[in-house]
Nucleic acid binder design. Structure first.
Length: 506
RNA sequence: GGCCCCAUGGACUAGUGGUUAGGUCACCACCCUUUCAAGGUGGUAGCACGGGUUCAAAUCCCGUUGGGGUCACCA
């Protein structure tokens, strides 16, 4: 799909700095980014901080940081610069004031002195009557179709009574537009309220500021959540008042809670940071979130996409209309796919710091230089790669590669121990002491040779040895595990363990 | 309640008039196997409902139902 010839594609993500980056916001940002990049255009981040009360200090920077962590890097923002700044709405107050004045002069907007209590009372009354709550246009001037005399308005203004400025929505006109994901949508202006444009504190409302900014910043496509669909008529009217050409719009389906309501806190994590902190990788999160509402289509059954591939393949036509439930299970599966494909070096760079953190917390009987070395970590990674769900589990889930077990999984002991287990293990220890070759193959042969004449199956020894050495009843191939741990560590753990574990100990 | 949007298995989805309705996650069974994973094979499970249009409808139209969004001096 091509943009209007001659017009550069410019999309934007416009969060308000009220907290962490919501995964829904992440997906909106992602789609904006992907669309722009796919069309060789620019992606802009604009901070919408027109609500002073809700503003959270530092949220703007943290939003950008999280975005960048996932690979979504803006071409323009308050941190990246650009020719259309400032990119923070609180720094653009003069601009909004100027344009609002224009609307006032053209009789597309008017002063309103109604108090909050008054409005609230009115709203309740209308609700009670089963009507749509709307401003009663008490302060709509006579020359704009209202009943308020000019003089009254001038008087209030002179007295310095606080006011807001409202847009004058035309009566009974049809407002139609083409949504890039929904197709044609139509509204009746009679259902549109006289939206406040400027608040009494001198700040613009979202509706006004975003229209002015989108125009001034030459945004070509507005891609945002479906919750904005019903305010489209207000925005379109504003473009018309100004005589500006509106951008193309696409309203994305919502991300949903398991109960199919709009994704929210309370039913689990919703901040992108929450997932990153849990160990999900940015690549997996981006991949997952991209597929919630978009697919390559045409029989394509692919599930794993890198950001670059998404940039290449993304299109708005392939965005669905129905909301999608944010299902963490599949994200977990994706994470595993990424771990399988990730290079050893990349994993080492993530888990090495984690290992050092652990080593500071507790002592190990193993050789620190060796177990923190790339070679050793690489071996652990290959043994555990298909068994972990998160990178941090290379350390936490595979603790026994770095620390001697402190306790032994009770359930596993119960299941694997019989009366003569300790005795046989004891004999096996003496055999191991004599073993020169501690490779997996050799160990396998040794164990089998040991067990056969005693009329036992390998499993008789394999399980107890595993538990004694690792403390748990599950893990990688025992022989490989022993090889990686090394003779010294294995013997130490066996000797120590055999004194602590007996069939009657648990 | 008004307005708007939406509707394929439990979840994500493919499908644009003719398919045994396909794939992925999850689930179940079996295989592999020293455990746990991974992998392999197979399986349970779906077009919300009712009318049309048509030789033919998951697909087009209308209605019903259901779900969601929105109706702030919040975004």
């Amino acid at each position: 799909m091509q943009a209007t010839p001659g017009q550069r594609v410019r999309t934007r993500f416009a969060p308000s700095p009220t907290g962490h980056l919501h995964v829904g916001g992440l997906r909106t940002a992602l789609y904006n980014y992907l669309y722009a990049k796919n069309m060789n255009g620019d992606f802009i981040v604009r901070i919408e901080d027109t609500d002073q009360a809700r503003r959270v200090e530092g949220a703007d920077k943290s939003l950008l940081k999280t975005l960048e962590m996932t690979g979504i890097v803006p071409d323009e923002s308050f941190m990246h610069g650009g020719n259309f700044g400032p990119y923070v709405q609180s720094e653009r107050l003069e601009i909004y004031r100027k344009y609002c004045l224009q609307l006032l002069e053209r009789k597309n907007a008017y002063y309103c002195f109604s108090t909050a209590e008054e409005l609230e009372k009115n709203r309740k009354l209308q609700m009670k009557q089963g009507m749509q709550p709307k401003y009663n246009r008490k302060w709509l001037p006579e020359d704009m179709g209202g009943s308020m005399p000019e003089g009254e308005i001038g008087k209030k203004l002179e007295e310095g009574v606080p006011y807001v400025i409202r847009m004058r929505v035309p009566d009974y006109i049809s407002i139609m537009f083409e949504d890039m994901v929904r197709g044609p949508v139509e509204f009746d202006s009679a259902t549109v309220d006289d939206q406040v444009l400027m608040k009494s504190d001198g700040f613009p409302t979202y509706h006004f500021a975003s229209v002015v900014d989108d125009h001034l910043m030459e945004i070509s496509h507005v891609i945002r959540g479906e919750e904005w669909l019903s305010s489209m008529p207000k925005h379109l009217l504003l473009y018309e008042f100004f005589g500006w050409e509106p951008p193309k719009v696409a309203h994305l389906p919502l991300l949903l809670n398991p109960d199919r309501s709009k994704l929210s806190k309370r039913q689990g994590d919703v901040a992108a940071e929450d997932f990153i902190n849990k160990g999900y990788s940015p690549e997996a999160i981006v991949n997952f979130v991209a597929l919630l509402g978009w697919n390559e289509g045409e029989g394509c059954e692919r599930e794993v996409y890198s950001l670059d591939e998404l940039k290449e393949k993304f299109s708005l036509e392939r965005v669905g209309k129905a909301g999608s439930v944010f299902n963490v299970e599949k994200l977990g599966w994706l994470e595993k796919q990424y771990i399988k494909g990730r290079s050893r070096e990349a994993i080492i760079s993530v888990i090495k710091p984690l290992l050092y953190e652990e080593l500071e917390k507790k002592n190990t009987d193993m050789d620190v230089d060796r177990i923190a070395g790339d070679e050793y970590l690489g071996q652990v990674i290959e043994l555990m790669r298909e068994r972990v769900s998160f990178e941090h589990e290379f350390i936490t889930f595979s603790n026994y590669f770095f620390f001697d077990p402190e306790k032994y999984e009770e359930k596993a002991v119960k299941k694997r121990w019989v009366a003569d287990t300790n005795e046989v293990v004891g004999e096996f220890i003496t055999v191991l002491e004599e073993t020169g070759d501690f490779s997996a193959d050799s160990l396998e042969a040794t164990l089998k040779d040991f067990v056969a004449p005693r009329g036992k199956k390998p499993a008789f020894l394999i399980h107890p040895v595993r538990i004694l050495v690792s403390g748990v009843g599950f893990g990688p191939s025992l022989y490989h595990m022993l090889e990686v741990l090394g003779k010294e560590t294995v013997l130490r753990r066996l000797r120590k363990g055999i004194e602590r574990v007996s069939p009657f100990s648990s």
